[in-house]
């Protein structure tokens, strides 16, 4: 039996703008197991992004507990959270994922650099991942020289280059056409099945949902359905 990667218990998060209060997460209980490919779906403002941010330690919940690989992370200090993200998590966002002043290859290499991996080893692993993902031709390009789809592929390569336990992807295909959407999701699915990396994606794109192995439906900060 595979153990849980994430366990969320009664997680709440409220955002305040002026006098208005928005309940982004309203009592979320969720467990995600190792190797799963989970898609969080729901309309805009349903709390998908906040859920992923809370799981990644980017936001702290106002209430409840967030456990990652058997360790409670919502109370961890900032430095330890950074270490955790560096060692065990990968992130892919909707756009502007890459550092514009680094080439595709350097973007991926940067994660390994932060981990203190020696330069030779970094280069070897980046080359390996790029070739596995079929994006060797993009290695020397800067983000401004790539299309949106190409940028997302490089972002995925960067997210997985350090062999993280989990990749959190917040609407990774939102800015892509259908052809690129399918290609990017298939790429994630391939990595998931090849290396067993857990993927948690948020989306409202049917093309992504129909490829999901597990779907979590959200509305108004609550989970309203699981598949």
């Amino acid at each position: 039996m595979k153990g849980p990667v994430f366990t969320l218990k009664g997680v709440r998060k409220v955002f305040r703008t002026g006098e208005e209060e928005v309940k982004a997460l309203d009592g979320i209980d969720l467990e995600i197991r190792r190797g799963e490919f989970v898609v969080v779906v729901g309309p805009s403002g349903s709390g998908k992004t906040t859920l992923l941010n809370v799981m990644g330690g980017i936001e702290r919940p106002d209430d409840g507990e967030v456990w990652f690989m058997g360790r409670r992370i919502d109370t961890l200090p900032e430095g330890e959270l950074s270490d955790l993200r560096l060692q065990s998590m990968g992130f892919v966002f909707q756009s502007h994922n890459l550092i514009p002043t680094l080439t595709a290859e350097e973007n991926a290499e940067f994660v390994l650099f932060l981990r203190g991996v020696p330069a030779k080893e970094r280069k070897r692993r980046v080359r390996e991942v790029f070739s596995a993902l079929g994006i060797e031709n993009l290695a020397g390009r800067f983000p401004s020289e790539m299309s949106g789809g190409q940028q997302q592929r490089v972002a995925i390569a960067r997210a997985v280059v350090g062999n993280p336990a989990v990749v959190l992807a917040d609407e990774p295909t939102a800015n892509l056409d259908s052809e690129n959407t399918v290609a990017v999701v298939d790429l994630m699915l391939r990595i998931n099945s090849d290396s067993g990396t857990t993927f948690v994606l948020s989306t409202h794109d049917p093309l992504v949902i129909e490829r999901a192995k597990r779907v979590v439906k959200m509305r108004d900060g609550r989970i309203v359905g699981r598949g």
């Binding site: 430095g79 270490d83 993200r85 502007h96 550092i99 514009p100 940067f110 994660v111 932060l114």
Partner: peptide
């Protein structure tokens, strides 16, 4: 600012 956010998700610490 957003770029720094992305960097932080990559594991960069504030002091970095």
């Amino acid at each position: 600012t957003r770029e720094f956010g992305v960097m932080r998700t990559m594991g960069m610490k504030p002091r970095h």
